[in-house]
Design a protein around this nucleic acid. Structure first.
Lengths: 199, 199, 199, 199
DNA sequence: GGCTAATCGAGACGGTACGTCAAGTCTTCCA
DNA sequence: TGGAAGACTTGACGTACCGTCTCGATTAGCC
């Protein structure tokens, strides 16, 4: 009975081939890294994956969703380490953000990907709720610890700070193409950390 | 002789029609605002402007340059007002930045435009040197005044702060589609201003 | 023992469902009548019959064979009545031919069906041996009676006359879409009958 | 002034390239002859002609119209010779019909072409008015001469006779694939000629 | 006033990608 | 083993833009 509730429709017919799924994601990440987002066509992804176009369209509605999954959902969310200070926590958080955005496939994909997300109302709503969700969770945890330590006031505009961090990294790394130095995260964390701490 | 040197080739043949130039820019801004950047094709711009496609391609190499000029170079650079304090100056600077990015045509154009700029090496180099140049001039002036006042140290990473401000506004307004409240510029200025001021 | 010889492999496993067989034929005839031959896909036939595609392909090699069986092998061959004269016999034979070709499903199916038969070498060979076989049997009987009566000479080119009759009806009814008047069979029989009779 | 009347709309824009036109027709005829009607795709025709697909679709709405023009409108209509007798005239007319239908490209194209014409209401109407028009003109001329000679009665069902002749040749040559012997036209002319002549 | 030359609107050109559809095969679970 | 369901590869469909080109017709500066 419980199974019936949780699996209301038994999966009928031939199940989807998980090797095809994986091959498509790999091919998409490769092609985006090689050719850039705009030049990586769905047809080319399918061809490299050894798969028909329908097999791609059956799983993803368009290039944006496919590339998003291929490039950005493979790394696990960092556990938001507790370094003992607001600036230290922000540095750690920014370091993982920089690392994620600076990966070759990510740099190649980000601008076009964000443009496609912004152009579609459905996708646009998912930027905050999906794309930035892991970072937001981390940021909220960092804030809570800072408030407990007395370093920060409650009521901080979390979304605004998140957009600032993400926007800064995107512009600096993803858009202008600056290779991120090892001190980038610390610099940003210093500015924003001091900007939001109490006093 | 001097004229000959500076204008080595006298303009022969029929001169370009400035009304066509203007009609194209207007049509481009309208179409981007109505359909979005991706759906606004050069053919459609030419048709609405009552102009042949070649007349567009003769003046701009592609959609990115055309839309950039149509949407972003019509407002004059603000004169960077001196409000007497770093935070006040930053607020003023951010207010004009927010105003520029929040215009309907700009919101519609920005993500796709930045994606096209980022995808092309030549255009990518122009993001800082052209797109962000006016804002950078303003920011440099603000910094110099703050240093003179003793509010800030020389040697601030201007480019990084600039990317932070622009990135924050782009993510918050241009990408996520948040309607900017009247306090947005002040909030951001407070965070970044306090983050970079001396001590 | 004899049964075992004639059926050397006893049918093992689940026997084929004859209701599925019938449902497929009915669905095929309906869809061809509704949408035309080209637009009636095997997938749609299977879906309407409540059947998997494999169940169709297990019984028929392709759309042509399926539709042929669905549309043309349901009416029993007429017994070739003896009216006492060559023209009368031809009229009767043509009337059943016209009736068969003028049925809605037949009109819809014929051109595409013949095209598919003609395109495939195996099927092309079956046009005479199957498609036209009943009519040919009838025509041969009619000729034999006419020869016995002295109305016709032996050695008539049966195949050519058959192609003429079938081609005339196909062009007039199946292709041009002319609704066949009640005198059509008689008119054709008069022309061809007088054309082949002795003297 | 008169020119203005006869050419009310001056041809603007780049004129169509007649070499492309010709290359497409040649490629279409070749591919149909090589692969058959169904397997000759418009994309393949365009590729062989060294032309974009749009250049094909700009001139013809679909494969049927293109192939019809490529295969059947290249031979000039025969002048309907006056042999002095109804049967002789019919033989001449049928000889050119057989010759036209028996050409390799025509045999390959005919069944599929007629199916596509029959499937589309607009095209179906054009079978008589275009496809059969030259033959009909010839047949009418033959009939008029026969009536003047007293060999035939006025009021003959021209369309029915035409469908009979065309249908016979199509079935015998185009569909069944019979190689037409030299006596085919004479045999058919004998049957139909005697069938319709007075007395 | 003719000559030269670039620009104008229009639209055809060769390409490339799109997203959909059908064909015929294969793979799962269920009877 | 049969059957229903549906995923699979392949390949054609017809459309839309891309950026370039080719027309005839303007519209200037130059001799």
């Amino acid at each position: 009975m419980v199974n019936r509730m949780t699996h209301p429709s038994a999966p009928r017919g031939r199940p989807r081939d998980s090797r095809a799924h994986q091959a498509i994601l790999t091919a998409a990440a490769e092609l985006v890294a090689e050719l850039g987002y705009a030049a990586a066509s769905i047809g080319a992804v399918a061809a490299r994956a050894g798969v028909g176009k329908d097999t791609v369209y059956r799983r993803w509605p368009g290039k944006a969703e496919l590339v998003y999954e291929a490039v950005f959902t493979r790394t696990e969310a960092a556990p938001a380490p507790d370094t003992g200070s607001l600036t230290g926590d922000l540095t750690a958080l920014l370091e993982s953000l920089v690392q994620e955005f600076a990966a070759p496939a990510a740099t190649a994909a980000l601008p076009g990907l964000l443009a496609d997300f912004a152009a579609d109302p459905d996708l646009r709503a998912r930027i905050r709720s999906e794309f930035l969700a892991p970072a937001k969770d981390g940021l909220v945890a960092v804030f809570e610890r800072a408030v407990r330590r007395g370093e920060a006031d409650p009521g901080l505009p979390v979304d605004l700070v998140l957009d600032t961090l993400a926007g800064a990294v995107f512009f600096h790394v993803g858009l202008v193409g600056e290779r991120p130095g090892p001190q980038l995260a610390a610099q940003l964390a210093a500015i924003v950390g001091r900007g939001i701490e109490t006093r």
